[in-house]
């Protein structure tokens, strides 16, 4: 399995991840090498196996519907890059 530089760029965009042009080849090589490890899995038959998402087959616990939070806006926004009038600011979003 070999990943092309084009594929790497596409994935990087999906992940909104800036990568240096000069590193694209290295990533492509590394990812291809990792994918080579994956071929080992295909040799194992798993037709009858249920996928395992969690280490323990437990069920979700449910919480009572109660409001327990008070506003901590000041504290939360004190660590924000850019806020105005209680809003988080980002570059203009166009629809």
């Amino acid at each position: 399995m070999t990943l092309s530089t084009e594929q790497v760029k596409k994935i990087a965009y999906l992940a909104r991840l800036g990568i240096d042009e000069k590193d694209v080849d290295t990533y492509a090589r590394d990812l291809s090498n990792i994918l080579d490890l994956m071929t080992q899995m295909s040799e194992t038959n798993t037709d009858e196996v249920q996928p395992m998402a969690h280490p323990m087959d437990k069920k979700q616990r449910l919480r009572a519907d109660a409001v327990l939070e008070i506003s901590q806006r000041e504290s939360f926004q004190s660590i924000a890059p850019q806020v105005d009038s209680g809003l988080y600011l980002v570059p203009k979003v166009l629809d």
């Binding site: 790497v8 994935i11 999906l14 991840l17 990533y27 196996v49 249920q50 996928p51």
Partner: peptide, 30 residues
């Protein structure tokens, strides 16, 4: 971190999800 984000994004992306992610979860059970 970038390498792993790229790897994970790839493994979950359309067309590869079953071959990689689901397969891995099945082998995880084994």
């Amino acid at each position: 971190v970038k390498r792993r984000i790229l790897m994970g994004t790839y493994a979950l992306s359309a067309g590869y999800y079953d071959a990689y992610y689901i397969k891995a979860q099945k082998v995880r059970r084994l």
